[in-house]
Each structure stands twice: as structure tokens, then as C-alpha cells.
Simulated scan of single mutants.
Amino acid sequence: MLKKLTVFQEVRELEGWQAVAYAATLLERMLPNYTLFCEVTEFADPSLYRNSLDAIWDWLSSPKAKINFTAQLEKIEMAVPDVADFDTYGVYPALDVAMSMTAIILLIQGEDPQGAVVVSKLSQGGVEAFIEATAEGDISDAEIKVHPLMQWEIEVQKELLVLIKKHPHSGSTCKLLKAFATEPGMTNIGIEIN
């Protein structure tokens, strides 16, 4: 449990572009979970969320970019899945993406200064829930902590903190962070990205 707390504490201390960049990078790893859910269930057009995340990256790359985040928020709120409407596990990671997207936009708008912590916890919680859902029988907290997916999640978040603190706010840093999220070719819950 100590490892988790230190990551969240460090994320809590991020401010401004660093907090948004941290959250956007984690969301970049999670987004394919939403896309896959939409493709399988025909729930919504996943490009809505892709476009919103691209707008966040644009805003990060060039802070003078004029982006109507209130309109973005309205669009994504129309495509939030209701877990009661689906009997597939995929709705949960999809909902994590929707909640993360909302948290980042509220962070940008200054309405939720802890938006990066919200996304950090949703990503890690999503991994935990996935491990529990795919385990054969009951699984202890200790077993979850040492599970390769959870170990990877914690390492990614720690490495991301180092990257964000080491690099200046720039378009090239945004490219680096996006590549960091997509290069492993897997989502936070281990689903392969084509």
C-alpha cells in the first residue's frame, strides 16, 4: 500500500501543465479500452473521445490554442456508458475513460485541481478491478500488488512522474509523453493496441 500512496502523493503535488500532461498520458493508455467497448457494443462513436483527447494534447502543445472545453465536456458527457445498460465487463474500463476525460477537462478549467490524482487512481483502480475480474477465485490485496499488470501500472506512473519533472513544457515533450503511452502497444489493463 505504501507504493500506491507515494505515487498519489507525488501526483497531488503536480500543478499546471504537468498535472494535465500526466493525466493526458495516462488517459492515452486507457483510451483504447473505451474504443474497443464502443466497437463491440456499438454504444457510441469512439472518435468523440479521441478528438477530445487530441484537443487536450493541442492545448498542452500550444497553450494559446483556443479550445472550447465546455463544448468538449458536453460532447463527452453524451457518450458516458451506464453500467446498468451493459452485461459486459468492458463497460467498467470504458467508464473509467469517461470519468478521466471529465476530470482532465475540469482540471484545465480550474474546477478540479486534483484532476490528475483522479485519473491516476482511476487507471490504477481499473487495473485492480481487471485483475480481480479475471482471477480464478478470490485474490488477496497482496496478490494484486505483485500481479505483473499492477507492477507495470505502478512503474509506468512512477516513470511518468520522472519524465514530466525532467522535461520542459513544450510540443516535443508532449510528443515524447504520447509516445511513452502508446509505444508498449498495450492499454493499462494489458489489452493489445493495433
Score class of each variant (00 low, 15 high):
Met1Pro: 14
Lys3Trp: 02
Lys3Ser: 13
Leu5Thr: 13
Leu5Arg: 13
Gly16His: 08
Ala19Leu: 03
Ala23Tyr: 04
Leu26Val: 11
Leu27Cys: 06
Arg29Gly: 10
Met30Gly: 07
Asn33Thr: 14
Leu36Lys: 09
Phe37His: 04
Glu39Ala: 12
Ala44Phe: 10
Asp45Ala: 10
Asp45Ser: 12
Asp45Trp: 07
Pro46Lys: 10
Ser47Met: 12
Leu48Glu: 11
Leu48Tyr: 14
Arg50Met: 07
Asn51Met: 10
Leu53Trp: 07
Asp54Thr: 13
Leu60Asn: 03
Ala65Cys: 09
Ala65Val: 09
Lys66Ser: 12
Ile67Asn: 09
Phe69Ser: 04
Thr70Pro: 00
Lys75Thr: 14
Val80Cys: 05
Asp82Ile: 11
Phe86Gln: 06
Asp87Met: 03
Thr88Phe: 00
Gly90Gln: 08
Gly90Val: 10
Pro93Tyr: 02
Pro93Gln: 05
Ala94Arg: 05
Leu95Thr: 13
Val97Tyr: 02
Val97Ser: 01
Ala103Gln: 06
Ile104Ser: 02
Leu107Glu: 05
Leu107Tyr: 00
Gln109Ile: 01
Gln109His: 00
Gln109Arg: 14
Pro113Ile: 04
Gln114Thr: 10
Val117Tyr: 00
Val119Gly: 05
Ser120Ile: 06
Ser123Thr: 13
Gln124Gly: 12
Gly125Glu: 04
Gly126Ser: 05
Val127Lys: 02
Glu128Trp: 04
Ala133Lys: 12
Ala133Thr: 04
Glu136Cys: 01
Asp138Trp: 11
Ala142Phe: 12
Glu143Thr: 05
Val146Ala: 11
Pro148Glu: 08
Trp152Gln: 15
Gln157Ala: 10
Glu159Ile: 02
Glu159Trp: 00
Leu160Cys: 07
Val162Arg: 11
Lys165Ser: 11
Lys165Leu: 05
Lys166Leu: 11
His167Tyr: 14
Ser170Glu: 10
Ser172Leu: 09
Thr173His: 06
Leu176Ile: 02
Leu176Met: 15
Phe180Trp: 05
Gly190Leu: 06
Ile193Trp: 02
Ile193Thr: 10
Asn194Cys: 04
